[in-house]
């Protein structure tokens, strides 16, 4: 079976600084992978490149069979991306974000029911018509996850979705990840919270200085032994 996410030799350089160095990754349908590593390891840059927000310096990225480097718009149509910081238009409301996403993605009528359901599950229904500039960090993170999962994408890219989020928000995010996997979506979660990475994903990839240093079942990074192994991979 062809992988839904297929990355070969992805490199992103900013002048002399190589942020991502020959990154390879393959995620089949219905699978979830955690991207873990220290601050500055290149996790967010990798996700930005996969989300077609940042053009790679070299390498190939295929999203659901689409060459994301050559046809980024087609790739964007089938992926959902939750950026690492903010990711929200400050003077627009959550409902306006969802309206905009529905139009830009050409979603058919009836998207309102899905939008309302997601806002309720993430406890944002009461704030659906408030501008996001007044949101707490956690509320902003939750809304970013809602926006990324709104159109039930074939590929879900979540960058630090649990950062500063309360336990109910974390559970709602884990539920969405589970739900999308069941419908055949591939999920990539970047996080520095190892416990939650283990809960959300079945595979884990450890990134250091922009390169993959280990890939293993996420369960192997669970518990004190897993954490010790993880720490040894970081230094």
């Amino acid at each position: 079976m062809n992988p839904v996410v297929d990355v070969r030799g992805l490199t992103v350089a900013f002048g002399p600084v190589v942020a991502v160095d020959g990154f390879d990754l393959s995620i089949p349908a219905g699978a979830s992978v955690a991207l873990v590593g220290r601050n500055g390891a290149g996790k967010s840059t990798t996700l930005r490149a996969l989300a077609c927000v940042l053009p790679p310096t070299s390498g190939s990225v295929r999203i659901a069979g689409v060459d994301a480097v050559r046809d980024p718009s087609a790739a964007k149509a089938v992926l959902g991306y939750c950026p690492d910081v903010g990711g929200l238009i400050p003077r627009a409301t959550p409902w306006e974000h969802l309206q905009l996403a529905a139009r830009l993605r050409g979603m058919a009528g009836g998207w309102e029911a899905r939008a309302t359901d997601l806002l309720e599950r993430f406890d944002l229904d009461g704030a659906a018509d408030r501008v996001t500039a007044g949101f707490s960090h956690g509320m902003g993170r939750r809304l970013s996850v809602v926006l990324s999962a709104f159109h039930s994408p074939a590929v879900l890219l979540l960058d630090e979705p649990f950062d500063g989020v309360d336990p109910l928000g974390v559970e709602a995010t884990l539920d969405v990840v589970r739900e999308l996997r069941l419908t055949g979506s591939a999920v990539l979660v970047s996080t520095h919270l190892l416990d939650l990475a283990v809960r959300a994903c079945e595979e884990a990839v450890v990134l250091r200085r922009g390169a993959v240093v280990a890939a293993a079942p996420a369960a192997e990074l669970a518990g004190p032994e897993g954490a010790a192994r993880y720490r040894s991979l970081l230094s």
Partner: peptide
């Protein structure tokens, strides 16, 4: 700058 940090999210949207 009107888009603030939402510019990253908008950049991940399909379309021209």
């Amino acid at each position: 700058c009107l888009d603030g940090s939402g510019a990253v999210w908008l950049a991940s949207m399909p379309g021209r």
